[in-house]
Amino acid sequence: MLSGRQCPDTEYTADAAAIMLDAEFEHLIPGPAPQEQVLLAAALHRHGACEPLVVWPCHSQLILLVGYEVFPTIKLYGMPCRVVYKSFPGHAEARMFIIRHHMARQYLTPLAVSYLRGLQYLGQRQPHGGDRRSVAAQDDGMTGKTAEALAELFNVSPATIRLDAEVTAAVLKIAANFESDAWPQRPTEPRRLVAVGATARGPVTASSW
């Protein structure tokens, strides 16, 4: 929770060493390719960060929500670390914020948008954990309400939202299978599987989404 001295949506300067990373949050969206990371680091040195990092004060820690692509460079070179605080009741709500934040960006492909809409659908249907790989497991006793609400929010049909959920569930199932001993050298991050499906050639980067 925010302290009395931390106002939400107000920019502050923070110590980069105090910011904690969350593996799930970091892997929701693919990071830049190595060559893009070099260009990004050079731009940061010349101009500084264009936008502040978004952090979540939680249990006396600052958890990074948005800015994973620039944070390593900021921390490595001791650059000024501008942050904006966001307050959430729990991990699920913070996760939904990240999904919505990235969906507002223009560089995502239709497949990536579908995947993120599906994540939001499954997250709202089962906000406290559980089996997100099974759409059938998400029955909250309000059939159609979640799909209808998201359909109105994203200006698509409820059927599209349910299809998005099926796509997301399939990706999560494949990622879980890759974690088994039968696939010891396979990538296990769902974001990578979606990105691979979104581009047939070239490096998998944020611009591939």
Rank of each mutant, 00 (worst) to 15 (best):
L2N: 15
G4Y: 13
G4C: 11
R5M: 14
Q6S: 13
P8F: 15
P8C: 11
D9R: 02
T10Y: 15
E11P: 05
T13E: 10
A18S: 06
I19N: 08
M20T: 09
D22A: 05
A23K: 05
A23V: 02
A23H: 05
E24S: 10
E26M: 07
H27G: 03
I29S: 08
I29E: 08
P30I: 12
G31M: 11
G31Y: 06
A33M: 12
Q35E: 10
Q37M: 14
Q37V: 12
V38I: 12
L39T: 04
L39V: 08
L40S: 14
A41M: 13
A41R: 15
A42S: 13
L44Q: 15
V54W: 08
V55N: 02
W56S: 00
C58I: 07
H59M: 14
H59V: 07
I63Q: 07
L65M: 12
L65N: 10
V70P: 12
V70I: 13
P72Q: 15
K75Y: 09
L76F: 08
Y77E: 09
Y77M: 12
M79S: 11
C81T: 12
C81V: 10
R82K: 11
V84L: 09
Y85W: 06
K86H: 08
S87C: 03
S87G: 09
F88K: 00
G90D: 14
E93N: 05
A94P: 01
I98R: 05
I99G: 10
R100T: 03
H101M: 03
H101R: 10
L108V: 12
L108H: 13
T109S: 15
P110T: 11
P110I: 10
L111G: 01
A112Q: 15
L116M: 08
L119I: 06
Y121A: 14
R125F: 03
H128Q: 13
G129K: 10
G130L: 09
R132H: 10
R133T: 00
R133K: 01
R133M: 00
S134H: 07
A137P: 05
A137E: 07
Q138D: 11
Q138E: 04
D140Q: 10
G144F: 05
G144C: 03
K145P: 10
T146E: 05
T146W: 06
T146H: 15
A147F: 02
A147R: 01
L150H: 00
L150Y: 01
A151M: 01
L153M: 09
F154Y: 12
F154M: 03
F154Q: 03
N155S: 08
V156R: 06
V156Y: 08
S157R: 14
P158H: 06
T160N: 02
I161Y: 04
I161T: 01
R162L: 08
L163Y: 06
D164W: 04
E166V: 08
V167Y: 09
T168V: 00
A169H: 07
L172D: 07
L172I: 06
I174M: 06
A175Q: 09
A176C: 02
N177H: 00
F178P: 00
F178S: 01
A182R: 11
W183A: 09
P187W: 07
P187D: 02
P187S: 07
L193D: 03
V194D: 02
V194M: 02
V196I: 06
V196F: 09
G197D: 04
G197V: 00
A200I: 03
R201P: 00
G202F: 14
V204T: 11
